[in-house]
Computed example of a mutant assay.
Amino acid sequence: MFGSVFILLALAVSYLCAPLLPVTAGWENGWIENLQALLLFAGGVWAFWFAARLPSPREKAFWHAIAPLWLILGFRELSWGAVFHAPVSFSHETGPMFSSSMQLWYKPAVTPVLALVLLVCVWIFVRGGHLRTLGALWRQHSIPLREMALVVICMFVSAAAEGHMGLSLNLSEGTSQVFEELAELCAYSALLLAQARVMRGFRQGGFSPVIGS
């Protein structure tokens, strides 16, 4: 509960602080976006590490289906690697711009590879009977509904900062970009909280007979 309240407060403080931060904070390859990528990759490594500590292959499989999703989000945040190239354009307000379709020779392979990885994750999840795992987590009150609602709220605010859905926050373009990135950072932090809650359910082990059946 404390973590969720902290993220809500962080989202509110982000709105207040965004005009005070330099516009460079919201640029591609800026410190906020780099921190986002770090959080996402950390979430994937954490899931793999947690899987390695579980006793049952079936329990491990649950997390082997989850961990790649973090890595996909992390690589997406890096524009699939385009950010490691020279920018295709630059603005003193919004910073460098990168284009994965223009700069990456392997960009046509990204979508098929993603589809394959997602299919494997779904196959692992279904083959392991993890719909029953979700049911057990629900009975144990370990489904992170509050945390996922926070993710939705933060992403909605991020979209509003970009001016999507006909919304405007009355911020300058550079400040809007800073706030958008901070809202995304809050969303990824909420995802980490969600994962922590599910991990706590696994540690309690009240549904292990269901998973291992």
Rank of each mutant, 00 (worst) to 15 (best):
88 V>R: 05
133 T>Q: 05
83 V>D: 02
170 N>P: 05
118 L>H: 04
93 E>W: 12
156 F>E: 03
119 L>I: 07
105 W>N: 09
153 I>P: 00
83 V>M: 14
107 K>T: 07
166 G>C: 15
76 R>I: 09
158 S>Y: 02
157 V>C: 01
84 F>E: 10
86 A>M: 10
73 L>F: 14
77 E>G: 10
163 G>K: 08
84 F>L: 11
151 V>G: 00
89 S>M: 00
74 G>N: 01
111 T>Q: 10
94 T>L: 14
134 L>T: 03
157 V>K: 00
86 A>T: 13
74 G>Y: 01
84 F>W: 11
130 H>G: 15
77 E>Y: 06
139 R>W: 04
158 S>T: 05
120 V>A: 15
91 S>H: 14
161 A>D: 02
95 G>N: 06
83 V>N: 06
73 L>I: 08
107 K>I: 11
115 A>C: 06
91 S>N: 13
168 S>D: 15
78 L>R: 00
92 H>L: 11
111 T>N: 13
98 F>P: 14
153 I>C: 05
90 F>S: 10
149 A>I: 09
98 F>K: 10
78 L>C: 03
157 V>D: 00
89 S>C: 03
80 W>K: 04
98 F>R: 12
98 F>W: 15
164 H>T: 09
128 G>M: 10
153 I>W: 01
133 T>C: 15
103 Q>W: 02
139 R>M: 04
103 Q>Y: 03
73 L>D: 07
87 P>Q: 09
86 A>I: 03
149 A>V: 14
